[in-house]
């Protein structure tokens, strides 16, 4: 039987959408306990309640500390290590969010164990499948030794669990010296009322073919019409059409919406790495030889500036 500690994420009291996905993965580990730890400064109650309601969670621990106001890997990692050691956990998991990917390796190195990035399937308590080479080679790995198993869970591989029995919530204070070498300064987030790219059931992405930031309006407008989140290729981000957090792909966000519409995107392997698990892929591209058509379930050849307004009228 395993005992799993999950590094949960919350912003301003709202539980991160990935936590339920990590719990789904943890449940496959033959776990007797699945504990979600939340780090913050004040105001953790509602996130803790949401985590406690997730099906399969047996306990929630909150670590309230001014230093956790804007959780940073270098400060959270030693707290996770303390929790892991005190609680005798066999597994420490996080999501493959930027925070999870920044924190878990630090935790693993402090524990002196390797880390499994992007768990996509659990085969056993120490055996997993994970993608390499931008998803073009899937490896089965076994974690050697008998140390704690540390890993990040590939959100796109696990639908979130629903709600179940309410688990107890416990506030803990940790006696850990936190380093002063890392200080939060600021965060820039573009405000948007659109659905969240990482959890939306529909996503429309634009690429270099869209041509400019101004032209991206046509993508936003179509997305709004069908209630979709908006993503982009790296080329579109690099060209300054849209901000970096919209990048989909190997080095951007890896998503699994039911519907993915790629507009003016050629379909480089690094982009495809981000959408392999989408339900239905639609491609709109004027080049009928574009590689995106090799993976698209439905392809439409033509000029996006003509087709998108047409589509918008039809839906």
């Amino acid at each position: 039987m395993s005992k799993v500690l999950i590094i949960g994420e919350q912003t301003g009291g709202v539980l991160g959408q990935a936590v339920g996905r990590v719990v789904a993965c943890a449940k496959e580990l033959n776990a007797s306990e699945v504990v979600v730890a939340l780090f913050g400064a004040g105001d953790l109650a509602s996130a803790a309640d949401a985590a406690a309601a997730l099906d399969g969670v047996t306990r929630v621990v909150t670590v309230d500390n001014p230093a956790n106001d804007h959780p940073l890997a270098a400060l959270v990692a030693p707290q996770v290590v303390a929790l892991a050691q005190q609680g005798g956990y066999s597994h420490v998991l996080g999501s493959n969010s930027s925070f999870g990917k920044d924190t878990l390796p630090r935790v693993a190195a402090l524990l002196g164990v390797p880390q499994v990035t992007d768990i996509m399937l659990v085969l056993g308590e120490r055996s997993f499948k994970r993608p390499t080479y931008a998803g073009n080679a899937i490896v089965t790995v076994e974690v050697a030794g008998d140390g704690v198993v540390c890993g990040t869970v590939r959100s796109a591989s696990y639908p979130a669990v629903g709600n179940g029995d309410k688990a107890p919530v416990e506030a803990v204070s940790l006696d850990v010296a936190l380093p002063s070498h890392t200080r939060y300064i600021s965060q820039e987030t573009s405000k948007s009322d659109r659905p969240d790219l990482q959890s939306a059931p529909k996503v429309v992405s634009g690429g270099r073919g869209v041509g400019s930031a101004e032209n991206f309006k046509i993508i936003f407008s179509f997305a709004d019409k069908i209630g979709a989140a908006v993503g982009a290729s790296r080329a579109a981000v690099d060209a300054g059409f849209v901000p970096n957090e919209m990048q989909v792909g190997q080095t951007g966000k890896i998503i699994a919406p039911g519907l993915y519409v790629a507009v003016g995107i050629s379909g480089a392997i690094q982009h495809l790495a981000g959408i392999k698990d989408a339900g239905t892929i639609v491609a709109i591209n004027k080049d009928e030889e574009a590689p995106i058509f090799e993976v698209a379930d439905l392809g439409l050849v033509g000029d996006l500036f003509q087709l998108l307004p047409e589509l918008e009228k039809l839906v």
């Binding site: 890392t182 600021s186 901000p243 966000k253």
Partner: peptide, 14 residues
């Protein structure tokens, strides 16, 4: 400046 899921985060490190 770090590229994080939410956008851009700035930190100071010694």
């Amino acid at each position: 400046t770090q590229e994080v899921d939410a956008g851009l985060q700035t930190i100071d490190v010694d």
